[in-house]
Design a protein around this nucleic acid. Structure first.
Length: 493
RNA sequence: GCGGGUAUAGCUCAAUGGUAGAGCACCGGCCUUCCAAGCCGGUAACGCGGGUUCGAUUCCCGCUACCCGCUCCA
């Protein structure tokens, strides 16, 4: 696909999202707000289905009695729902505070426009005159150091003062780490086990862009998987492959999806392995992929940080960062977060594998992947263009539509009766407005997998037609068997 | 943060210094027995704030949002 059609596709997807009520700009009647997006009536169903599928597949549907193929043991999986605002020290110990707070200096000089870290001016080079540091060259026009804050700051309590400063979480993961002991003490889990969480996170992205891809408020689906250090590489590989397969199983199966292992130069200072699941979003430049999920082998970095304090890498590996007086720059909780294995009588700090997914990015990828234009023959056999969202039935906002063929002869009443029946199990729609072809197309644009049409034969013989979204083929099904037929076609969802 | 572009109805577009039309969509009606039919009627817009002007959707300035290219991307 070249750039032009990529952009066309984006415009069509964005337009469809607005037209059908998937995604709206936040606060739109006030002019919108950059980096924030709302989900409309169909969008909220899509996103909920996505999160439900993740939760079902990762947590409640997990079999913790069977070892995955090739792995040393079964594992347990539990969920958690922690707060968006946490103790400010969490972010200092985790490293986010330092990482997300830079004092930056911009050069306003024409032809320069460079940005420097205020604490590194002396070791930086002026782009216009590399023999000098920023500010030394005559043309330099530096701003005062300005705080560059990637975390949203807020105040706890009604009184605004520095003592009450806190932050909206930039990731959900820390809520899991700080509850590690609680889960261990109460959930009857032993290593290896995972803790899953879905929730909102907030980052002051420098450049919100690409529709919902880089938003300032977004939702994450994260797992922190705790295991014995010597088994961590095997579990890392397991999670990397399993998470990739999850997207494929839900329909992200084109060559736009890829799994990419990070090179050693890309790894964070604590990570011994990271892979990204990436999608070639149509709005990205040709050949570029955007991250849907990162699977990181984080070693014992996180639990150690919350025990000892903020860690940095030194010659021996990770060490607590010290201040001028030799004290921890940011102290940890001081609590013991190690694990005691009763069988082996060993005490150690578990290693962590972190599959961290963006729910909004996944929703967007599924929308882009599902958007299809094809041609359907009309009654004269002439191909007519159609827009269809080929969403996986589990993700589709509406599972089926019940349609009376005409608005007469008792067909609406019969269709409504059927609609009420199916409602008990699925999110189904009822529509009697317009011609039958028009209504099929409407459902196609919303991604509804099946349409159930009530006609005279329904009244006479107790059968309906079920029309397939992707192939547009129809078969007759007895109303008695309709529920089980739909269950089979929809995968019980 | 820098530069460029764009902003008119739900969507896609048009016209205009004298407050705006169309197609599609949507709603009501007629018709209609399976893939965007037709007919009648209807709802609905100049992103926000200033300025110039008798009068601004139109010209100018600022803001906001989106798009493109940089910068940034833990």
């Amino acid at each position: 696909m070249d750039m032009a059609t990529g952009r066309e596709l984006v415009e069509k997807v964005v337009s469809l999202c607005k037209r059908r009520g998937f995604i709206f700009p936040s606060s739109e009647i006030y002019g919108g707000l950059g980096g924030f997006w709302d989900y409309g009536p169909l969008g909220v169903e899509l996103k909920r289905n996505l999160k439900d599928a993740w939760w079902r597949d990762m947590v409640t549907g997990h079999d913790d009695t069977t070892a995955p193929a090739g792995l040393p043991s079964p594992y347990a999986m539990v969920g958690l729902d922690t707060t968006i605002i946490m103790h400010p020290q969490v972010w200092k110990a985790s490293g986010h505070y330092d990482l997300f707070h830079d004092l930056l200096v911009d050069c306003r000089a024409e032809g320069c426009k460079a940005r420097f870290r205020a604490d590194q001016l002396a070791s930086s080079r002026c782009p216009l005159k590399p023999s000098k540091t920023p500010g030394e060259h005559d043309a330099c026009d530096l701003t005062e150091p300005r705080e560059f804050n990637l975390m949203f700051k807020t105040y706890i309590g009604a009184l605004v003062d520095p003592e009450s400063e806190s932050y909206l979480r930039p990731e959900t993961a820390q809520g899991i780490f700080v509850n590690f002991k609680n889960v261990l003490a109460t959930a009857r889990v032993r290593l290896p086990f995972g803790i899953a969480q879905i929730g909102k996170s907030f980052r002051n992205e420098i450049t919100p862009r690409y529709f919902t891809f880089r938003s300032r408020e977004f939702e994450q689906m994260e797992i922190e998987f705790f295991c014995r250090p010597e088994e961590s590489d095997a579990w890392y590989t397991f999670w990397r492959d399993r998470r990739f397969a999850w997207y494929v199983a839900l329909g992200l199966d084109s060559d736009r999806l890829r799994l990419r292992d990070h090179g050693s130069d890309e790894l964070s200072h604590y990570s011994c392995g990271t892979a990204d699941i990436e999608y070639a979003f149509p709005f990205l430049p040709r050949g570029e992929f955007g991250e849907l999920e990162g699977i990181a082998h984080r070693g014992d970095f996180d639990l150690r940080s919350h025990m000892e304090g903020k860690l940095i890498r030194d010659d021996q590996g990770l060490a607590v960062e010290l201040d001028d007086r030799g004290r921890p720059r940011h102290s940890g909780s001081g609590k013991d977060l190690s694990y005691f294995d009763e069988e082996t009588q060993e005490r150690f700090i578990p290693h962590v594998i972190e599959p961290s997914a963006g729910a909004d990015r996944a929703a967007l990828a599924f929308l882009c992947e599902a958007y299809t234009e094809d041609n359907i023959p009309d009654e004269k056999g002439v191909p007519q263009p159609r827009v269809v969202l080929r969403l996986h039935p589990r993700l589709a906002p509406v599972k089926a539509a019940v349609l009376p063929l005409i608005r007469k002869e008792g067909l609406p009443e019969a269709a409504q009766e059927l609609y009420r029946q199916l409602k008990a199990q699925w999110n189904v729609a009822y529509d009697e407005k317009g011609s039958i072809g028009r209504r099929y197309r409407r459902q196609d644009e919303s991604g509804t997998p099946l349409c159930v049409t009530v006609d005279r034969e329904t009244l006479a013989a107790g059968t309906v037609t079920v029309r397939d979204r992707d192939s547009t083929t129809q078969i007759r099904v007895s109303t008695k068997e309709l529920t089980s037929y739909l269950a089979e076609r929809l995968g019980c969802y």
